[in-house]
Design a protein around this nucleic acid. Structure first.
Lengths: 155, 155
DNA sequence: TATAATTATTTACCTAGATAAATAATATTA
DNA sequence: TAATATTATTTATCTAGGTAAATAATTATA
């Protein structure tokens, strides 16, 4: 199996998908990563910043910056949390109003992108992707030969 | 099928893979996108800049910048092409010397990442990924229903 | 052949990922 | 309680993707 081709394809696809997502979001003055945050806040309600970046599996500074932009453009606001450290992120009223139509647009795009995949194939793809890289942070890098069988670590 | 979850997973996986790639490349003072260029120049020989970005399916300015960095750090040099416009990119001697050991390192990483996938599953994943979004640039965006079957375009 | 269009590359400037380190607040512990 | 560690967020600074527009060279065309 040509593994490097597989990773090449993975990268290319994600780049193209992000590009198209940005295109359909442009009329709403939104960018892909901002959409992601809009989405989870809509689905899950207000969250602290830490909850957001942990959920999205990105780093904290990345999230901070995106939130600053979204606050400046009126999508979210940040109110004090339980601590003086914590900040809770909540959607503005206009964000909540705009959400349904944006969601429809994104769903349309996603349907177009998976157009050629049957429902079963989509499930397959999901599962195969989830099987990638689940052996995390063990013998800290460097020794490239992972001789140990780590099957028992995978759920 | 939860399509948004599928795209979420796709994005997360690619981010994690890139992160790990950067980690194993760090000892060589290389970054992921630089590795990609090093790889194709090693496999395919000298290429013009346009050939590079078309092959990688990224935009020209992205490639320009990465090449500038790689030239500064001694991985490549750029010599005149057939035109006074064109520039041909070629690996330096030190790059060629270092390549085999870097390649081994990356291959080890890739094997670790696909560890849980059988050969057949890797093929499946490759094919499913390729089925994503192959309906390109037709009736210029907006009308989301792509009725035409375009199977014959895929090799 | 002068003008217009195209091609190859670059520059300027966005968003978005990362790491390292700073700050401020809170929690732990000696 | 004072000192230390942890937590939440931010700031600074990288790489890497994108678009729009500039530049210079070449090709096509009126």
């Amino acid at each position: 199996m040509d593994t490097s081709r597989l990773f090449h394809t993975l990268n290319q696809k994600v780049r193209l998908l992000t590009k198209e997502l940005n295109e359909v979001l442009q009329p709403f003055q939104l960018f892909s990563s901002q959409w992601t945050i809009l989405y989870i806040l809509s689905e899950k309600g207000p969250m602290s910043q830490t909850e957001i970046w942990k959920y999205l599996e990105v780093e904290a500074p990345t999230t901070t910056r995106t939130l600053v932009r979204m606050e400046a453009s009126g999508w979210i606001y940040r109110k004090p949390g339980r601590d003086k450290r914590e900040r809770i992120v909540e959607l503005t009223e206009t964000a909540k109003e705009k959400y349904p139509s944006i969601k429809k647009t994104v769903e349309n795009l996603e349907q177009r992108l998976v157009y050629q995949l049957s429902d079963q194939e989509q499930h397959q793809l999901q599962q195969l992707l989830e099987k990638l890289e689940e052996n995390r942070k063990d013998s800290d890098s460097n020794d490239n030969q992972q001789a140990t069988n780590m099957d028992e670590k995978f759920s």
